[in-house]
Design a protein around this nucleic acid. Structure first.
Lengths: 246, 246
DNA sequence: TAAAATGTACGAACTAGTGCGTATGTCAAG
DNA sequence: CTTGACATACGCACTAGTTCGTACATTTTA
């Protein structure tokens, strides 16, 4: 399959290819996977580890060069396995990219889920949520980059993945609850749409990371400096809070 | 030259290639360029128009498929000229991409320059500036996409172009002046960094466009709806203003 | 006629993907 | 506990098609 053809590649096709297990869903780890590497100089089968290894390298490659710019051969070389295995497990370059994307989303979902905010006063709850979002984007630039890449491709791959689509709803519910409590307690004056508020927060946190290079180049400012980071974290929190109080 | 090699391609090389005029700087248009197309069925040389044509098509191609994903042959086909001319005028794919990027930046610089805000009261001046930024990003998605692409490539091409690097400083000066006047008049309570404020505004406006697809997919919301746009425009303005007043 | 502009056809290198052979693990039957 | 059968895991080397870039010929302009 050629690059040109891949533009209109139906990602679901990968489901009809040979083995292609991609059964990463079960987190079950083999009993001996601790010492999984290589036994002596003989080969030791460890599909879980092999797939993780491929995904790690692929994430690095795709976030550095984009989807079209990422080279399967380059990934294969940096892996402790071969290109054949990439196709064995992921079916195609597109399939590999999708697996990378899904894993990245799965990773953050777990972090965002349990964040007991319901017993904090509304304003403080919101500040904690904003801090968390801020620090998450800061700590996961590769996730931010993958989302940027997805947007260049009109979120085409995301659309095919139910796993990714029904996500992030929990954040909205969390925000909605905080806003309601804030209104009820009289600390927030404005009835705002929770999705809008999420966007206001997310936009700033995301932009800081996604546009780090162009922004840094134009304004000669290093956005990853600790002092700058703290100031920015305070700013977005203050901006959101003062908006809601007005 | 291959794609692999292009990763470390020194963009300045294009300056040492054959003709490669790229003299887009002078906006002088030939007297007869109005009827420039084709005289009868004979050829009529019109380099200016040819280059513009190539750049238009290239912009579309690169913003749709990215730098690595964009195909020179695809661009050539959609042009009324040939691939030979692309190399004649721009030297290489990278050179073409850089020209596209520079033209996009040059386009916005003119828009941002004269915006008489100094005789408006500070709060109103800021609201006008925010509206302008908001509508600019909304009206120029291809510019937003190019910047996203540049960030994926660590702003590598932007760094080589002095034309782009010394830009955007005017916006900061404008904001600084407004903030100072606001403090002096007592309408703003907080002494904020103008670059930070620019980032707060820019992040939201940019994100709405750059992350339109992923955000729209996850939250099933069309960000280009007029009602949504107006609400968002008001929200970012209110957020910035209330932040400065606190 | 010299210089600039343009079209055609081609090539060298690269890239996604595969055919085929081999190694390893599992499990049931003896 | 062996042995054998079969599915899974893995690697080498190859191919068909694509991609950027260019040599060469040709036309237009000045």
């Amino acid at each position: 399959m050629t690059l040109e053809q891949m533009r209109k590649f139906d990602v679901d096709n990968r489901l009809s290819t040979r083995p292609v297990s991609v059964s990463m869903a079960d987190e079950t780890v083999k009993a001996d996977s601790g010492m999984a590497a290589k036994r002596e100089n003989g080969r030791k089968n460890d599909p879980q580890r092999t797939q993780e290894d491929i995904l790690d390298v692929a994430t690095e490659e795709f976030t550095t060069h984009g989807l079209a710019g990422g080279r399967v051969d380059a990934i294969a070389e940096k892996t402790r396995t071969s290109k054949r295995m990439i196709y064995y497990y992921f079916g195609s370059k597109e399939g590999l990219y999708l697996a990378v994307l899904e894993r990245a989303y799965r990773k953050i979902r777990t972090l965002e889920e349990d964040l007991q905010l319901s017993n904090l006063p509304p304003e403080q709850a919101l500040r904690v949520l904003i801090s968390t979002t801020f620090e998450h984007d800061e700590a996961n630039p590769e996730f931010v980059r993958l989302v940027s890449i997805e947007n260049i491709h009109h979120a085409a791959h995301m659309l095919r993945s139910e796993a990714i689509r029904d996500l992030n709803v929990s954040v909205i519910e969390t925000i909605a609850a905080i806003l309601d409590r804030g209104i009820a307690a009289g600390v927030f004056a404005r009835k705002a749409d929770p999705i809008d508020i999420h966007m206001l927060i997310s936009a700033f946190c995301f932009f800081r990371v996604s546009n780090r290079y162009t922004f840094g180049t134009i304004f000669r400012r290093d956005l990853s400096e600790p002092a700058t980071m703290e100031r920015h974290k305070g700013m977005i929190a203050d901006a959101v809070i003062s908006y809601l109080k007005t």
